[in-house]
Write a protein that binds this DNA or RNA. Structure first.
Length: 668
DNA sequence: GCACCGTCTTGGTCTGGTGA
DNA sequence: TCACCAGACCAAGACGGTGC
């Protein structure tokens, strides 16, 4: 039997919604009233948009009025009892007791009323634990398309001196709230179209404070898939029988239902199977079960594991590699399968399978698994190298089964058929519906968390990169190294204008005995540096970087550049070539070869990193973890904000700033 | 702003292969 | 033969682009 206390619902709003002891009896009776289909609830809405709803107790419990009231009044009034029942421990108890009186109903009637309706600013204030007024200001600012850097810099007083990081988090929460609102509207529309919407249900939907909660309320009302087994069984007219068996309201015999001319009703086994499909469907969509599962995932996350192994495709590829083709002649069926697998294997052909070696026998609890591991597993899975699965311990499955048993089987007539159908249905429901649902929920939760973590890492790295200290007041020579096409070099002034640009071959020749000082290219390099009094070299870190570095260090060691004191530094080339071919670069350097533009860009990257790096799209700067696996839209939105934030932080000289920098100024 | 279309994602189910 | 598993398939909805 399930110990309900183990599953006390650790909800962040628990304190707000907890059912007070003095209200328990009252709430129970209200709940029974609400669940009774015969009695109607009178609803009075003062504001047509977002009514604040509370249930007002009158003399007779059967008369319940829903009234719109100011928040303070709701809090202070003793005569008015707010109806804040939800899925916590007390409530589960409540639901159990109510079940006795509602055995004949299907699970869809068992809806638990949520908190009162809310406005975006109220929910934002609640979720972020900030003042309602600040939340309201924030919502207004965001609604008016003010960017995070702008708010952080010029509207700080309105948002309680929030940091840019805090504002970004607040914006994310606000976006979620907006999505929640939109989803609630869609659900209400859908339900009203199918005539399933009641005032009560509408309030529940409007009061849902998270996607999970909304999903829980909506799930029992989702239209079944026409192709599903349960729907097919319902088409045979077996739903009523299935519900009677599940609730145990009567003895049922299957023989009278047999019809030899109809598929699914041909014999007792057929009828039984169809009933099992319906019961399995009811179990998987029951609100209390879904609620239990959600708590199970939250509270037992240390016990639920995510595991990965080599995919079958990779395994079979390895086996076929090791096997001697002459030794065994493949039979026809195997040949057919091999052809089928060949396509899949081709996909993994070019992927370095060994990259995923750490994940060939990977196992971790979903609580402890790291975001980068989730992203790696996802990538491995999408490349068909890994197969990832969620593992739920047997005892947890047993607990779920016990919960289901207590939910339906504790009451009603006991007879072997009922017991048999329930056991079979639970097995079917778990394997076909519940487990895939749990796995999907866990994976999507983990993915969401991992994506956010990856974006956060990206944003932090980008910020550090952009805020590197500049090296002002020097002439700088940039080198974009290369073998076949030579090293592209460019000298810039202290203000970034191009003085000289050409191609030299700055690496040791095949005959290593020839010192670089005897090389014509070394002489040319020396002349350029002396001509422009340039002592700093920015060397790109791409192809031929090491060879060019050796060449330069040998020249410096031998005192080749004297009397100049030449030094070099290695600069990241990420995005430089993309920028050099962009329309912006063509506009800036109309007469310069794009290859030489990248050398200019490298020199500018150490002279004024921020001004140069803002010209490149943040995602091309290569400072992110699994950046190609996260939602591109969200990533670019956040990175754009980080860039604006950095530009605002450093400040801009309007007379000299490029268009790319001016575009990033907050508020412009 | 709206309708339309194609593409992608998600949820649910089925099918066929594998190994005990 | 059966249970289990991976992958394929399908339907519905979401989303983005395009044209009016």
């Amino acid at each position: 039997m399930v110990n309900m206390e183990e599953f006390s619902y650790n909800h962040h709003r628990k304190s707000k919604r907890k059912l007070s002891v003095e209200n328990e009896e009252y709430s129970r009776s209200i709940k029974e009233e609400l669940q009774s289909p015969k009695k109607k609830i009178k609803i009075e809405k003062k504001s047509p948009k977002t009514p604040k709803i509370s249930l007002v107790k009158t003399e007779k419990v059967s008369k319940i009025k829903v009234k719109s009231l100011p928040k303070e009044e709701i809090k202070s009034s003793k005569s008015i009892k707010t109806f804040n029942v939800n899925y916590d421990l007390e409530n589960n108890d409540l639901v159990k007791k109510n079940n006795k009186s509602k055995r004949n109903k299907t699970s869809t009637s068992n809806i638990v009323v949520s908190g009162s309706a809310w406005t975006a600013s109220e929910l934002l204030s609640e979720k972020l634990n900030i003042d309602v007024q600040i939340a309201q200001n924030l919502v207004e600012l965001l609604e008016n398309d003010n960017t995070i850097p702008f708010i952080a810099r010029y509207r700080r007083d309105m948002v309680g001196e929030m940091t840019p990081e805090g504002l970004r988090h607040a914006k994310e929460v606000y976006e979620t709230i907006k999505t929640l609102q939109a989803k609630a509207v869609t659900i209400i529309k859908t339900l009203s179209k199918s005539d399933k919407l009641t005032d009560y249900l509408e309030r529940c939907i409007a009061g849902a404070r998270s996607m999970d909660e909304l999903e829980l309320i909506y799930t029992p009302y989702k239209v079944g898939n026409k192709r599903s087994k349960a729907e097919a069984a319902r088409q045979l007219g077996l739903e009523e029988t299935a519900i009677t068996i599940l609730n145990g309201t009567d003895y049922v015999a299957l023989e009278p239902l047999i019809n030899e001319n109809v598929d699914g009703l041909k014999d007792v086994a057929d009828v039984e199977l169809s009933i099992v499909h319906i019961v399995a469907d009811i179990i998987s969509k029951d609100l209390d079960i879904l609620n239990f599962i959600r708590r199970m995932i939250t509270q037992e996350c240390y016990k639920i594991r995510i595991e990965s192994s080599q995919s079958r495709t990779v395994k079979s590829k390895e086996i076929s590699k090791n096997q001697n083709p002459d030794k065994k002649k493949p039979d026809k069926t195997k040949e057919k399968n091999q052809n089928k697998d060949k396509k899949k294997q081709d996909k993994t052909k070019e992927i370095d399978v060994n990259k995923y070696q750490h994940y060939f026998q990977f196992s971790n609890s979903i609580k402890n698994v790291k975001p980068h591991q989730i992203l790696a597993l996802n990538r491995g899975e999408s490349q068909k190298v890994l197969s990832v699965k969620i593992v739920i311990p047997q005892w947890l499955i047993k607990q779920l089964e016990d919960f289901c048993w207590n939910h339906w089987m504790r009451n009603g007539y006991e007879y072997p058929l009922r017991k048999f159908v329930f056991e079979k249905s639970f097995k079917d429901s778990y394997s076909r519906l519940i487990f895939p649902f749990i796995a999907r929920t866990i994976r999507s939760d983990l993915n969401r968390g991992a994506e956010l973590a990856a974006i956060e890492v990206f944003a932090t790295n980008l910020k550090s990169l952009l805020l590197q200290p500049p090296l002002r007041g020097f002439h700088i020579l940039g080198i974009d190294p290369g073998f076949k096409n030579g090293c592209k070099i460019a000298v810039i002034t202290s203000s970034g204008s191009v003085l000289d640009a050409e191609v030299l071959y700055l690496h040791l020749k095949s005959s290593y005995n020839v010192p670089p000082t005897k090389d014509e290219n070394a002489r040319k390099l020396k002349n350029i540096l002396q001509k422009h009094s340039c002592e700093i070299i920015a060397l790109g870190n791409g192809t031929a970087c090491r060879e060019t570095e050796i060449y330069l260090s040998q020249l410096i060691k031998s005192g080749w550049f004297r009397p100049l004191d030449v030094r070099y530094t290695i600069v990241s080339e990420q995005g430089a070539s993309i920028y050099s071919c962009s329309p912006e670069a063509t506009k800036e350097f109309p007469n310069l070869d794009p290859n030489l533009v990248s050398a200019v860009s490298l020199a500018r990257r150490i002279q004024d990193p921020l001004s140069e790096l803002v010209k490149v799209e943040p995602k091309h700067l290569g400072v992110g973890m699994y950046q190609h696996d996260v939602a591109e839209k969200l990533l670019s939105a956040i990175l754009d904000e980080v860039v604006s934030e950095c530009v605002s932080f450093v400040g801009v000289d309007l007379n000299t700033a490029s268009l790319s920098v001016l575009k990033r100024i907050a508020g412009l």
